[in-house]
């Protein structure tokens, strides 16, 4: 049986506390991974290892952080992701809320969008899938 939302959040919270050295109460569903919790790109590797272990799943790093799209000459023009690029991101990341990013698709701000809640939804999509 798939774990409940609370169980998923609890395990994600523990992984983030361990990986980022933040306190439990800082890891709220709304907290942004990079802007609020201070995650850097290398932390995502550590976080992925911890989530894979906690949930016994396999995680493709490109699913969580689609660097290939964000650095693609096809999908990025003048520092902004093109409508085709945004469509590709939505296709890859159906679990993420990209509405704010779509309004101002600046590549630099992409990393600040991912929240703990997004991460939980991603995990749930993997557990169901």
């Amino acid at each position: 049986m798939a774990p409940s939302s609370d169980e998923v959040f609890s395990k994600v919270q523990k992984a983030l506390v361990d990986a980022l050295g933040v306190d439990d109460d800082e890891v709220t569903p709304e907290a942004r991974m990079m802007a609020d919790l201070g995650a850097e790109s290398i932390d995502f590797l550590d976080i992925i290892f911890k989530l894979e272990k906690a949930f016994s799943i396999s995680i493709d790093r490109a699913e969580l952080f689609p660097e290939d799209v964000l650095t693609s000459a096809t999908y990025v023009k003048d520092g902004k992701v093109t409508p085709d690029g945004v469509a590709e991101l939505k296709k890859r990341m159906p679990w993420a809320d990209l509405a704010k990013f779509e309004a101002n698709p600046n590549v630099q701000s992409f990393g600040d969008l991912l929240t703990v809640n997004d991460l939980c939804r991603y995990i749930q999509s993997k557990l169901v899938g």
Partner: peptide
């Protein structure tokens, strides 16, 4: 080695 992937290891 606790875990090893294509892009890293712990």
């Amino acid at each position: 080695i606790e875990s090893r992937r294509d892009d890293g290891a712990v």
